[in-house]
């Protein structure tokens, strides 16, 4: 998997409502398209299943890093307070479990949160400053009140005339073929 995938061309189709978008996504998946995306101003329930998206591996990555954060915080405190510079603090033992817990807790949460954000960005292959979609005038409306499906040229089934025709048959309007300039 290349970190930044080259996309030359994108076909964009507009749909009238979230329901139509959901149905269209379902048909796209049944037709065998993989490298397509749906754009909507809000979350549509059931879209993941309609598009055939798998569960994100992010949870497992976060869990691994959180565990590392937990062990790291424990190790750090053990090494600083009990090995490298042992100091009696309010009559507690050098390695005093309860006193370490808040730091362990906080560092676990911190690593988990940072991993979640950075991991999400990486899995989405962001940041991406160039994309053929940006050359469309209509596309900006996706954050406003329009619903779009975009098909990227990297898809195995991508065929400009055929794909555009298929999008039309499933209810797409204002079909645009966008090139990376």
């Amino acid at each position: 998997m290349k970190l930044v995938k080259k996309i030359d061309r994108v076909i964009l189709a507009e749909f009238g409502s979230p329901k139509e978008l959901l149905k269209a996504a379902e048909k796209m998946r049944q037709e065998g398209y993989k490298e397509f995306d749906c754009h909507s101003p809000f979350h549509i329930h059931g879209m993941d299943a309609a598009m055939g998206l798998k569960r994100s591996p992010l949870g497992y990555i976060v869990f691994a890093f959180a565990t590392m954060g937990l062990l790291g915080a424990l190790g750090l405190q053990y090494w600083t307070s009990a090995v490298d510079y042992p100091l009696v603090i309010s009559g507690k033992p050098f390695f005093s479990g309860p006193a370490f817990v808040p730091v362990v807790f906080a560092l676990t949460i911190l690593t988990a949160a940072i991993t979640a954000v950075v991991g999400m960005i990486a899995i989405n292959r962001l940041p991406r400053l160039r994309h053929p979609l940006f050359s469309s005038d209509r596309f900006g409306k996706f954050s406003d009140g329009s619903f779009f499906i975009s098909v990227e040229s990297s898809d195995k089934k991508y065929n400009e005339a055929h794909t555009a025709g298929f999008l039309k048959t499933i209810g797409g309007q204002n079909i645009e073929i966008l090139k990376d300039e």
Binding site: S90, G91, K92, P98, A99, V101, P102
Partner: peptide
Amino acid sequence: GFSQYLLIWYAN
């Protein structure tokens, strides 16, 4: 439960 325990344990 831990918050309750920690403060009591620490203040002693």
